[in-house]
Amino acid sequence: MATNILTVENFQKLAKVIEENKGRQGALMPILHEGQKIFGCLPIEVQKMISEELEIPLSEIYGVVTFYSQFSLEPKGEYVISVCLGTACYVKNAQPILDKISEVIEAKPGGNSPDGKFTLLATRCIGACGLAPVITINEDVYGRLVVDDIPKIMEKYL
């Protein structure tokens, strides 16, 4: 995406979060969560600032950021499409649904569409097994899907 996320304003917000959490034991994870909320992702510049303020080596922070699947080094698209691949959804044919969305938006699972508008994720159980198979697009939830429903749903966002 073209928009610059590394703004002075965002770094000021981050500085405030660090200040509030600094005294806490094990402050790194909560700060990373907040950082991701502010910037939308955790690029190396953000990690550097956290490293300097908390006096934790950058290598260690990079290690933590890349370990957890919820932390991302790159910005996500305007719409994040999560296809649940929990067991209940999988046995009810979630895989073809993922394949279809992937085809429609031209993005591989874990990646962005060419225009950066969509991010496609194959997620673990979101716990809405009664609606299986289920996908979420940002805050919207679509359940009890068949492959044929996908083009219609995607039209709203394209």
Partner: peptide, 8 residues
Amino acid sequence: IRLGAGAF
């Protein structure tokens, strides 16, 4: 409360 970050 401490939040996980998506690691089984």
